[in-house]
Design a binder for these strands. Structure first.
Lengths: 224, 224
DNA sequence: AGACGCTTGTGAACGTGTGCACAAAGTTGC
DNA sequence: GCAACTTTGTGCACACGTTCACAAGCGTCT
């Protein structure tokens, strides 16, 4: 299955869930594509990799298709996740409701700061980073989420990998290297913002962009 | 400039900044590519879209190249950003240090909950969502960050667009439609986790995956 | 049963992105 | 000043992803 298709399956899953909640039983590729924001031919080709689950002349049965995608992605199993780094972002991730409903379970929270260890966040006690290897092994954790400062990211990833974690989601603004066979995905606000800025600059954006000084004055006048 | 190249420029910028901090003055495409985690030919091709800023036989001057990329992306200007939705994630974003250093300035925080309005977060007073349009116009905001619950995301984006925002970064786990000409990027934990799960399932992951029941027992035994 | 209308699934063309391999161009050493 | 060495910039071939367009298949209506 093409990587691009894999990346869109969660999108389709979300659209299907919304439709199911509205009580829709059947949906055509055209409708589903519209609500997922993609081209209908692309949607059909993507779904065709799963098998022939549609009915010509009718469309796709929402619940059935949802189940097939869920199975394909592997969400019928429960995935234990450890979050490393319980700062602002770690807190937000620990409290994020979208995990549990999709088969991900925050199994442990870890931080290197002794001051944070023992604190209870989202119903779990924060544990010390020294225990990381033990935690990963005891809880059968396969997915690690890194929400540490940039300087700690590489070390944390190395330790996660050494402990047997083979999938890592990195939120730290750092370039991290992992060995072959380990999946590393990164989520980076700063990068996304910079991509937006690039396009903004090439639109009417020049008019809206201010010098730092002008902006500071404005901000003070309005917010202060 | 190809979209794929634009998406990598921030990566190069980060690598260059790290090198500059280490006092490195010159870098070859091979070295820079290694530290950015990409192929050196790709790096050179990407940089060639900026112009011919390298010296054959030598490499690239770190500071100079950094400046060129900064300019190309548009980070020499100050971009005013509004964050909508000051929950856990909004807090984390407001306090994220990586913005200011890259030319982005959190100019305003907005929330629909009257209970949060007036609260001070990251040195700014949270203002009510009703004022959104006014704030966008007064502060010359070009980029909006949406960190609301999923159900509010579409409405917030519509209002941002109506107020003149043409670049939006959406953190809400929702599929949002925007008119032509508006750039919408999304950052979605859940999607990223699902992509990881897909690959994990196709590796040795089956061994690590537990049923929900087994996992709950384990978790209780270890965390409880 | 047969004709008609609708929607899927997919072959084929097109466009974008990647990576090799090398000529061009600069630096260094003698 | 010239030869040897290093590294950039890029033409070209290939791989990947997207979109069109339509045949195949299913349901419905007469």
């Amino acid at each position: 299955m093409p990587e691009a298709t894999v990346a869109r399956l969660p999108l389709y899953l979300r659209a299907l869930t919304t439709l199911a909640e509205r009580g829709v039983a059947t949906v055509s590729s055209e409708e589903l594509a519209a609500s997922a924001g993609v081209n209908s031919a692309k949607l059909r080709k993507d779904l065709s990799y799963l098998g022939s689950y549609g009915t010509r002349g009718v469309g796709y049965e929402v619940d059935f298709l949802r189940h097939q995608i869920t199975r394909e992605i592997g969400l019928t199993q429960d995935w234990a996740v450890v979050i490393v780094g319980i700062g602002n972002l770690g807190h937000a991730l620990a409290n994020y409701g979208g995990f549990a409903s999709r088969g991900f379970r925050i199994a442990a929270l870890v931080d290197a700061d002794p001051g944070r260890v023992g604190e209870e966040v989202a119903g779990l006690k924060v544990r010390h980073a020294d225990e990381l290897e033990q935690i990963v092994q005891d809880l059968g954790i396969a997915i690690g989420v890194v929400a540490t400062p940039a300087r700690a990211a590489q070390l944390v990833c190395d330790r996660l990998v050494a402990a047997g974690v083979t999938s890592i989601l990195n939120f730290a603004p750092a370039i991290v290297q992992v060995p072959e066979g380990v999946d590393l995905r990164k989520v980076d606000l700063s990068t996304e913002m910079q991509i937006l800025a690039y396009h903004e600059q090439r639109k009417n954006g020049a008019a809206l962009a201010l010098t730092a000084e002008q902006a500071a004055e404005l901000a003070e006048a309005v917010n202060g």
